[in-house]
Design a binder for these strands. Structure first.
Lengths: 212, 212
DNA sequence: ATTACTAATTCACGAGTAA
DNA sequence: TTTACTCGTGAATTAGTAA
């Protein structure tokens, strides 16, 4: 998992600059023998995770990146309320979302609930298969509800949504109650034309965060 | 450090609800024998870190709290620049925040936007003078907006907020649009009574992190 | 299919110590 | 003072297998 000695070195700041840390100190602080600390340090060097310089030990960028990845992943699992990250590819919708976003009632209701007038179009992203489970977990959180209405003898259903952020732009993921999408496509609205604003085309890879 | 099997169970969501995970799966995913996975699971049960129910394995709150502490610490070391850290002293508010947090509409909107029902009270912290500049920088980030509403002929304004964490408890810093506070007092809401939960009294020194 | 026991094995640890 | 070697010991792991 996370190497105890490597984490210790990071705690001592060895990822910022070389730190003069003896194997005796490591042993004392981590409650192990000096011999073990020495051996572990050698192992870390052999696996390219730390380096020894005359100024002390340094954690390599590679090891740091790996550590960050692990901590990030744990963080996300432990604090799911801080935002679900998704990544996937831009795909073309059926133009249905765009049609909805042109209807004044929806526009008004979205403005009321989300605080922005949606651009008359949606961005459809086919999420990575490994994110589908996350999407299911997302749906266990209470959504923001855009009310439906009746217009010209036709029923327009409510829309469930969650705020999201894509490359700094705030928008929302929308789930029309009668959705035509499968589990792997998420539909996004925003105050601007996301395709244009973010220079996205079909098959563009992108990532975004959803806030339940 | 961080137990590999425990982290695996968290990755599988066993801290949210019981997860049907076999020792064989653990063994396969973590590259160990089924026997070792079984033994480690038993050890985790003995140390009170997981429980086995007919519905699957569950990570206990105690183990989760411990894990969060460790991850938080690493997070802080790895990303010293992330999150705005504030420190200051607890002060008494005018009871205005508490009044707001008792109003159903605000409670509903907060639950919707932040994912928790706020305790009917706020914690006011007078931040250190050197943190005031940080507070100004914070306001340049897009806030989460709690919608206002009209009730009994009176307008209740929207509330701008940012998620925050104080001693492991997730909450939010709130900025009512018509705030009565100066620049040096921050008002915090959380799902629990922070004063009680963290044993804080007036003049208690405390610190917290705000996530823009 | 599971899980978890016992026995065999391996490999991690620390004592002693040299450099 | 360090660090890091060898080596004996024992804890951790796996194979085999029962339930």
């Amino acid at each position: 998992m996370i190497d105890e000695v490597l984490a210790y070195l990071v705690r001592r700041g060895a990822h910022l600059e070389p730190a003069k840390i003896t194997t005796r100190e490591i042993a004392y602080d981590l409650d192990m023998s000096q011999q073990t600390a020495s051996r572990k340090a050698i192992e870390l060097i052999k696996s390219g995770k730390i380096e020894r310089t005359p100024e002390g030990m340094v954690v390599t960028g590679k090891a740091l990146a790996e550590l960050k990845r692990t901590v990030d992943e744990l963080q996300k699992m432990l604090y799911p309320e801080l935002g679900f990250e998704f990544s996937g590819k831009v795909v073309s919708g059926l133009g249905e979302g765009a049609r909805f976003m042109k209807i004044q009632q929806y526009k008004d209701n979205i403005k009321k609930q989300l605080g922005f007038v949606p651009y008359a179009g949606t961005l459809n992203v086919k999420i990575n298969p490994e994110d589908v489970e996350k999407r299911l977990r997302l749906k266990t959180h209470p959504p923001i509800i855009i009310n439906g209405f009746r217009l010209a003898g036709k029923d327009f259903g409510k829309i469930l949504c969650y705020r999201c952020k894509i490359r700094g732009i705030q928008g929302a993921i929308v789930f029309p109650v009668r959705s035509t999408h499968g589990l792997n496509v998420l539909e996004m609205i925003a105050p601007v034309n996301l395709r244009k604003e973010l220079s996205l085309t079909d098959q563009s890879w992108t990532e975004f965060v959803v806030y339940p």
